[in-house]
Design a protein around this nucleic acid. Structure first.
Lengths: 225, 225
DNA sequence: GCGATAGTTTGCTTAGGATCGAAGTATGAA
DNA sequence: TTCATACTTCGATCCTAAGCAAACTATCGC
């Protein structure tokens, strides 16, 4: 009875098309303004404002004022993981799917999940790291080995800086398209950040798709080999 | 835009209190009849029938006729995992929680998740199995080692029989209370089944709580040690 | 200060869907 | 065959919540 109430509360927040579109847009990881989200959801500003208030009240998103803008973002990695798992169910048990178009293919291959790399390439990367002993996995928790710390530091990531903020440095996240885990947490975010900084890939506008350049893809292969 | 539609579809299914209560009840793993679910949801039979049709249509549940009864169950482990992840978010970011009562404590300690052991004891069990090399984990996928096969067989589990039906023998599932993985899949179900058969624990009526007997708990400790 | 942009609040309309009673179908029991 | 149980379908009601227009608040640039 009580468990159902919790489920329903979150479910109804996600269950409205306008709010769902907002959440999907925020899965991209970048914070968005109320107007941008209104546009994304296809509703007017007043309506969007009401929706955002509900989402914030329910704890799914977090707001930050910046001048006359208000930036909204998912409040937590766990919210992103939940949304991914819902998408996973939608993809498997959902209504008979039309065969996936080219956009879906790109999305499956490489995309941003909140703030880290997901899709086939993300899963492959974690697999390789585990195989090489750079990451140690136990259950959902993951750990960076000494060899891994060395490797990531040489890649240009400041592990010391990561440790300072509160979020777990290393954790995994279930991938909806591949149904395997990929690397999330501080290290996952830092790796994606670095790859974008090195111009290995570019984010496609208004989407979660990551487009790797041919050179970037080759360097990525070498990096994880 | 499209991603949001998928989210909203599943979300709105979970978002109705009556349906959410039904799903929560089905998380117990046992299949329930329409009347039982109506009672659980606190609605009349016609209403329940309509809800069940929607859930089945959306692919979240699966129906099986048996005489004049119709038994409903979650359609898939992935649905159970999704519901767990939603509960996880509800528990963390949700409305300011009242301090957990004794029921919550029991639920945290040991409960049924669809058809396998979850809660602190479930997480502990998987941790020990991994540490002892009985289960090998790589991402979300898991595997039974040779030593593990031997150990589980001696515990009275027919691993050969497990392999026959289609569901993956070994996989992990994220625990909402502990936020770590526990053991799911065919082996998870078989282990719980065996423990119940050995009278280590009893299921509490109309709830997901597992009550271990003192002796059962001690045997469990030895089993995973 | 003034206009302009970003966002919220208020008040109203409307539609979708949750609910139940009553009638209809299917299965089992006598 | 007849009655009872289990469930669905139909029809009608009612209520929540999504939507927008208009008015209000706050911040920026000048």
């Amino acid at each position: 009875m009580k468990a159902g109430t919790d489920l329903a509360q979150i479910g109804s927040l996600v269950g409205d098309p306008a709010r769902a579109n907002m959440l999907a847009a925020l899965m991209g990881g970048t914070a968005l303004t109320a107007s941008e989200l209104a546009l994304e959801a296809g509703v007017g500003l007043p309506t969007a404002s009401a929706h955002l208030a509900k989402l914030a009240d329910g704890g799914l998103i977090r707001m930050q004022r910046q001048g006359r803008h208000r930036y909204y973002a998912l409040s937590d990695q766990s919210v992103a993981a939940m949304l991914e798992s819902i998408m996973g169910v939608a993809a498997t048990v959902g209504p008979k799917r039309v065969l996936p178009g080219p956009r879906d293919k790109a999305l499956r291959e490489a995309r941003v999940c909140y703030d880290h790399l997901a899709g086939e390439m993300g899963v492959m990367m974690l697999d390789r790291f585990v195989a090489k002993g750079l990451i140690l996995i136990e259950g959902e928790r993951a750990e960076i080995s000494d060899a891994g710390a060395d490797y990531f530091t040489r890649f240009g990531i400041d592990l010391g800086g990561l440790g300072k903020n509160r979020r777990p440095v290393c954790r995994t996240c279930l991938d909806w398209s591949v149904r395997r885990a990929h690397l999330a947490g501080g290290i996952g975010a830092a790796l994606l950040d670095r790859m974008l900084g090195l111009d290995w890939a570019k984010r496609e506008q208004h989407s979660r798709i990551l487009r790797f350049t041919p050179i970037g893809r080759r360097k990525f292969e070498i990096f994880i080999r």
